[in-house]
Every structure is written in structure tokens, then in C-alpha cells.
């Protein structure tokens, strides 16, 4: 039974691998390109995502709910915005890696507004990404883009709180 669900869960991955191996032997170019694209994203995921989960697990056991409620809960105000932005800046990896963190923040009592500000800051201000941006696009662009993005994702946080506010829930996706 366990095996069956496992196969079902990984159905697309298995199919993909079979097709990739087939492409390799048949010399099917598009298949090989797709595989090499996959590989690049896969490496990115392997590099960052497992680490995120270790941190999420540690965060879960060490940080008490009261602390999160107090500092980034519903009534936390500007300090809360500042704290979630700072927390997000310290992270790395692709956006889907931030969803589990959003889940743990929600579970610990973070406010709706702050959860979305967290996602905004994660997407546009995380330090590892700013490093890449600086290298490829220069200081002026990085500064301008960061400063223009900041008020906008905070605004999105406020709008989300207003629009989904009370019936908002984050579920553990598995």
C-alpha cells in the first residue's frame, strides 16, 4: 500500500526519467535539452531547499508561539514588518521554498499581513539574490529596484490582510 502511493506520488518524476533516458538513447534533442534544464533547477533545489527544511524544523522546536505572536502577530505593527523583512532577507532559494516557512510562521501565530510581507521580501530582497543582482546588473539598478520594491510588497501585505484577512489559513501541503 505504501509502495503504491509512493509510485503515485512520483508518477511524473518516473515518467520524466524514463523519457529522459529514452531521449538519451534515441538522441532526441528536445528531450535532452529539457533534461539539462531540469538538472540546473534540480541542483539549485538540492543546494538550498534541504537546508531550509532543517531551519524550519529547528525554528519549530525552538521558537515558542507566544514569541511569534508577540513580535510578528496581528497586532505587531511596524516592528513586525521590520522583523519579517529582516528574516526573509537572511534566506535563500526559490520562492516555493518559502511556502513551508510561511506555513510554520502561520502555525506559530504570525499575522496575515506579515506572512505576505515575508513572501514579498523573500522574493525581492533576500541577500544571496541581491549578491547575484549586484554582480550581473550593478549597484545602481540593485539599489533602485530594492527601494522601489520595498513599499510595494508591504502594500501588497496590507491589501492581502484586508482582502483575505479572517478566513486565511495556511495548510501543510502534504
Amino acid at each position: 500500500m505504501v509502495k503504491k502511493t509512493l509510485i503515485k506520488q512520483y508518477a511524473w518524476v518516473i515518467l520524466f526519467l524514463i523519457l529522459s533516458i529514452g531521449s538519451y538513447f534515441a538522441g532526441f534533442k528536445p528531450g535532452l535539452t529539457i533534461y539539462s534544464n531540469f538538472q540546473k533547477s534540480f541542483i539549485e533545489m538540492l543546494v538550498f531547499v534541504p537546508v531550509i527544511f532543517i531551519l524550519v524544523g529547528l525554528f519549530d522546536v525552538w521558537v515558542p508561539k507566544e514569541t511569534i505572536e508577540k513580535y510578528i502577530g496581528k497586532e505587531s505593527g511596524i516592528l513586525g514588518i521590520f522583523l519579517v523583512t529582516f528574516l526573509a532577507m537572511l534566506q535563500a532559494g526559490p520562492l516555493y521554498g518559502a511556502f513551508p516557512v510561511a506555513y510554520i510562521l502561520y502555525k506559530k501565530g504570525a499575522g496575515v499581513r506579515n506572512i505576505f510581507i515575508y513572501l514579498g521580501a523573500f522574493s525581492s530582497l533576500k541577500i544571496p539574490m541581491l549578491g547575484l543582482e549586484l554582480g550581473y546588473l550593478g549597484l545602481k539598478y540593485t539599489l533602485v529596484r530594492s527601494l522601489v520594491s520595498l513599499p510595494l510588497f508591504i502594500l501588497v501585505g496590507f491589501l492581502m490582510e484586508k482582502l483575505v484577512g479572517d478566513d486565511f489559513k495556511v495548510k501543510d501541503a502534504n
Partner: peptide, 19 residues
């Protein structure tokens, strides 16, 4: 306990991530 939790969430997330 924290590690166990982290690994558990990660394993659950792996299939959708790979997709």
C-alpha cells in the same frame, strides 16, 4: 525532534517540487 520534523516536511514536499 526538529530535524525529524524538517525531514518529514521535506519528504512530503519533494514530489510537488520535482514536478
Amino acid at each position: 525532534l526538529g530535524l525529524k520534523k524538517g525531514v518529514k516536511i521535506f519528504i512530503g514536499m519533494l514530489p510537488p517540487f520535482l514536478n
